[in-house]
Design a protein around this nucleic acid. Sequence first.
DNA 1: TTCTTTGCAAAATATTTGCACTGGT
DNA 2: ACCAGTGCAAATATTTTGCAAAGAA
Lengths: 133, 133
Amino acid sequence: MDRRNTHQKELILKAVSGKGIHLTAEEIFQSVRQEDPRVGLATIYRNLNLFTQQGLIQKIEGPGWSCYDGNPVPHDHFHCVRCGQVVDYPDEYNPDMDNAAGQKTGGKILFHSTTYEGICESCLADENQAASG
Amino acid sequence: MDRRNTHQKELILKAVSGKGIHLTAEEIFQSVRQEDPRVGLATIYRNLNLFTQQGLIQKIEGPGWSCYDGNPVPHDHFHCVRCGQVVDYPDEYNPDMDNAAGQKTGGKILFHSTTYEGICESCLADENQAASG
DNA sequence: TTCTTTGCAAAATATTTGCACTGGT
DNA sequence: ACCAGTGCAAATATTTTGCAAAGAA
């Protein structure tokens, strides 16, 4: 199937791609709508799926949340359970883990993903302020 | 709120708890129904949420799948993208990772979770058989 | 008896799909 | 002109919720 470049794809890709960009489908929808209010939600999903398949972006998920990461290179994440923000965790992806896992399980490992759940620095500050105030 | 023990809770807990048990909500529903067909799906969800909150089980999720793990102790998982099966990954949970992440991000880490995505041994065998057959 | 828990059905959420139409090539 | 891509609305899948009835304590 040959692919065509469209206005919509450009807008969506521009909204979602980039290092450190972590947006939900709904956020991407809102963002794209600001540029062109005629774009439909189905188009957002269709293209996010397409971009994910093509390896231009990746979808990351955890307990009760999910978002699209504009950086397709696998890396770890930190998710704040309070504000919901997702940030890249500053560590190198370790391919040795995949090799080791392949040998241990006897299967073929494609990749792994590590997600830290916790409370981010700024939310911690908010909580301390609320406790003392 | 004081908790009451019910027949339903017993059935659900019996179906889901245990090391190496990884079942989806639907699978748990089916399993419980075999014992008592009058149990409703809402009751399944209500109690799975309750047990997760109480720390009796944990919910684990990845791209496009999720299930309940009968072992509440955090540990890594391997998910087969072909058959969908989830198995425990035989490695110790490393709390040092959480300490390191806490220091790096300035936040408070509750826990981390690593999931390997790949093709399990038995699915690899199937694929090789199909290719040669 | 009191008040949590349940079953059911409806609602809320999130995502996908059918189809006629638009628009890239 | 051809057919991939789109917008819309309906369909699907999953999980939650309102409420009257059931049943633990």
